[in-house]
């Protein structure tokens, strides 16, 4: 098969993949989410600037760019932080905007839908597993098969959007509930609480996962772990001993070779004749 035939086949497969219903559905979902995003931003009075995240998102969708969602998020962060109360010179407390509006919730739903859809789309058309640096080309097996996308998956996605937004609101309300300790500023107190909550969840999950992994370890893994611990504690001394032992072995071999010249002569004769 020639190179051009290979390229033709590849482009045909790519066209077929792009026209698959699953790919199309995720593409439509992302576009709808970007449209909703534009509406939410326009409602905040951002004028033409409200189109920037959507344009970036559309461009990333068309090119299947994996850095599209982070760029959309950063542009959004820039726009929203510029239009926040502090940027407008207002110094208001957290209590002034304690409950989010409907448009805030819609914004969250739109962004979550876009991020989710875009990443799943990338898994279908680019790769779901990380690329092997040794391979020059993406193996088609590294993509998620579009045939595996079911209606159940789309329904679950639709249900997940309001659920996670709702949970974020609950978390927000929880953050607002407690008074600060030690007379620290309210904003700092909120940040600290959030950071500690994240760290606590991470620590508990990490410990549980590592405990679970150790209890289900195979005998080989356990042996390897013990050996590794022993080596880490004593590797300098062990290295020194073994270096000397190796030196002694090589020296003994050299002496044996010297004391048996017949071996050498025979070897030289063999080589010489050949």
């Amino acid at each position: 098969m020639t190179l051009s035939e290979n390229q033709d086949q590849r482009s045909e497969a790519s066209q077929e993949l792009r026209s698959h219903p699953a790919v199309r559905n995720y593409m439509l979902l992302c576009l709808a989410a970007l449209f909703l995003l534009v509406v939410c931003l326009a409602e905040r009075g951002l004028e033409w600037w409200c189109l920037v995240p959507a344009l970036i998102g559309c461009l990333a969708l068309l090119t299947y760019w994996s850095h599209g969602p982070p760029l959309v998020l950063w542009s959004l962060a820039g726009l929203l932080s510029m239009s926040g109360p502090r940027s407008r010179g207002l110094h208001v407390g957290w209590w002034r905007f304690r409950m989010p509006t409907l448009m805030d919730l819609m914004l969250c739903v739109a962004v979550l839908a876009y991020v989710l859809g875009h990443y799943r789309l990338l898994s279908l058309v680019r790769h779901i597993f990380p690329l092997d640096p040794r391979r020059r080309r993406v193996d088609p097996a590294q993509r998620r098969s579009a045939a595996l996308v079911t209606g159940w998956e789309m329904a679950l996605l639709g249900a997940a959007l309001p659920v996670w937004t709702g949970l974020a609101v609950v978390t927000w309300v929880w953050m607002m509930d407690y008074a600060p300790l030690l007379d620290m500023p309210l904003e700092l107190w909120r940040v600290l609480r959030l950071v500690w909550a994240i760290l606590a969840v991470l620590a508990v999950t990490g410990i549980m996962a590592s405990y679970l992994r150790q209890t289900t370890a195979t005998p080989e893994e356990s042996l390897l772990y013990l050996q590794d611990q022993c080596w880490r504690q004593t590797h300098r001394a062990q290295s020194m001993f073994n270096r000397w032992l190796t030196w002694a072995r090589l020296r003994a071999q050299r002496r044996t070779c010297v004391s048996r010249p017949s071996l050498r002569i025979r070897e030289v004769r063999t080589r010489g004749q050949s």
């Binding site: 929203l80 932080s81 905007f97 914004l107 962004v111 974020a168 909120r190």
Partner: peptide, 15 residues
């Protein structure tokens, strides 16, 4: 959190 933006905070929490 630092710039007191509710939509951003809410969006960050959601994600």
């Amino acid at each position: 959190l630092l710039r007191l933006s509710l939509p951003l905070t809410l969006l960050g929490l959601t994600l």
